[in-house]
């Protein structure tokens, strides 16, 4: 179970956000009240929150863009004569 998903919270949410998200989650009725309570508990404690954040989010540092002409997703081609009569 991903508590962030249950409470519809983003990465970096605080314990306070977790408390506030409970009402909305209960109203939405997507998860059981037990699941919502467990999710809230998992995000209230900062250590447990750190664990959940590690388990449920990935962070990738993308390679820097290389200098050079920007490629565009259009492709205008000239029909090559070498294939005309093949």
């Amino acid at each position: 179970m991903n508590p962030y998903q249950v409470l519809n919270l983003r990465r970096g949410s605080t314990g306070r956000d977790a408390v506030q998200a409970v009402a909305a989650a209960l109203k939405e009725r997507k998860y059981s009240s037990r699941e919502i309570a467990l999710a809230q508990r998992a995000l209230l404690d900062p250590v447990s929150r750190g664990v959940q954040e590690f388990l449920n989010f990935i962070e990738l540092e993308r390679p820097r863009k290389e200098p050079g002409p920007e490629v565009r997703p259009e492709c205008r081609l000239r029909y090559l004569p070498s294939f005309e009569n093949v």
Binding site: E70, V71, R72, L77, F83
Partner: peptide, 23 residues
């Protein structure tokens, strides 16, 4: 193993596809 003109077009197509995919 086609001619140079084709290979140039092939590379252009690949580049365009990649940009499209990334987008």
């Amino acid at each position: 193993g086609q001619d140079a003109a084709f290979l140039e077009q092939h590379a252009a197509l690949r580049s365009a596809w990649l940009a499209d995919l990334h987008q």
